[in-house]
Design a protein around this nucleic acid. Structure first.
Length: 97
DNA sequence: CACGTTACGGTTGAG
DNA sequence: GACTCAACCGTAACG
């Protein structure tokens, strides 16, 4: 909320992975990065090339791609929140849409 | 070398 | 206002 969804990376746990990309543990990638992963994949780029191009681990690329094929959306799942059934169903529904 | 899944540590967010 | 709890996050490692 307070932080913008783009550019402004968290300075708290910000670190560099083996690929040289900046990431934040426990925090999802920026929307534009996720979007790029899906777009490149659809263009026919190999997951391994995408991971190197976007500087994200291949495991993450594979995971995001799998989620995209399953849900049809690049957005992450519903993190946090209590296990209130109603909330889960509500969020899950919003996620798919 | 390319790919999927698991294991790990960490953050999130409603109640 | 602060704590709890389960789910999801992405990287690193394994096969």
């Amino acid at each position: 909320m307070a932080q913008d969804q783009s550019i402004v990376f968290d300075r708290r746990q910000a670190g560099v992975n083996q690929l040289g990309g900046v990431f934040v543990n426990g925090r999802p990638l920026p929307e534009y990065v996720r979007r790029r992963i899906v777009e490149l994949a659809l263009l026919g780029v190999r997951p391994c090339d995408i991971s190197r191009r976007l500087l994200v681990s291949h495991g993450c690329v594979s995971k995001i791609l799998t989620r995209f094929y399953e849900t049809g959306s690049i957005r992450p799942g519903s993190i946090g929140g209590s296990k209130t059934k109603v909330s889960i169903i509500n969020l899950a529904n919003a996620r798919i849409n």
